[in-house]
């Protein structure tokens, strides 16, 4: 259909020329707006963002997995095997003292540690006779540490405890 085939415009309605002009103006306006809001296509922008992000992620992963010394946290404190071994000996010594208290107060050894007011857990009590007993606990390596009341042994003598001094010390 051609524009000439259209009906004659009535009075007050624009002519085909007017409509053509208006359409051309609208198209020009739309093109202007599109040109104004269109982002400039800079191919270089896309090229550096990806590698930069990847590099940053690689560095972050490296820091997490193998941190350099100046970034690494100071190591957490740990209990050494010697300190754990000493802990077992001190626990046995505490139990021995309380067994001695019972012995001194009652004139006899307890039948079991349940009779002793202060019971240290995971220590086994073995009576040899009416006066001598052994206390047995597991060392950190699983082997038994034995306290013999008749001969405690050097492992218990070496322990320097703040509560072993004079009263008030």
């Amino acid at each position: 259909m051609k524009i000439e085939d259209l009906d004659e415009p009535t009075q007050g309605i624009s002519s085909p020329e007017d409509r053509g002009r208006l359409l051309a103006e609208a198209i020009a306006e739309a093109e202007t707006r599109e040109a104004y809001y269109r982002q400039p296509e800079n191919p270089r922008t896309c090229h550096w963002k990806g590698p930069l992000a990847l590099s940053l992620l690689v560095i972050a992963g490296y820091i997490v997995l193998a941190p350099p010394p100046w970034l690494a946290r100071s190591p957490l404190p740990a209990v050494s095997i010697e300190e754990r071994r000493r802990g077992v000996a001190v626990a046995i010594q505490l139990q021995a003292r309380q067994t001695e208290v019972f012995q001194a107060r009652h004139g006899r050894l307890p039948a079991t540690l349940d009779e002793v007011p202060g019971r240290v857990p995971d220590i086994r009590f073995v009576r040899s006779n009416g006066r001598v007993y052994q206390l047995v606990a597991a060392r950190p390596n699983g082997r038994a540490l034995v306290y013999d009341s008749a001969n405690p042994g050097p492992e218990f003598e070496r322990i320097d405890n703040a509560w072993d001094g004079e009263p008030g010390s």
């Binding site: 003292r97 309380q98 001695e100 208290v101 012995q103 007011p117 009341s149 008749a150 405690p152």
Partner: peptide, 20 residues
């Protein structure tokens, strides 16, 4: 916790503390 301990005076030989 609380417990009691014994002060053992007059140990005869080092390394061989006498029981109470």
């Amino acid at each position: 916790n609380r417990s009691e301990t014994v002060d053992r005076q007059g140990r005869s030989e080092p390394g061989f503390p006498a029981p109470a």
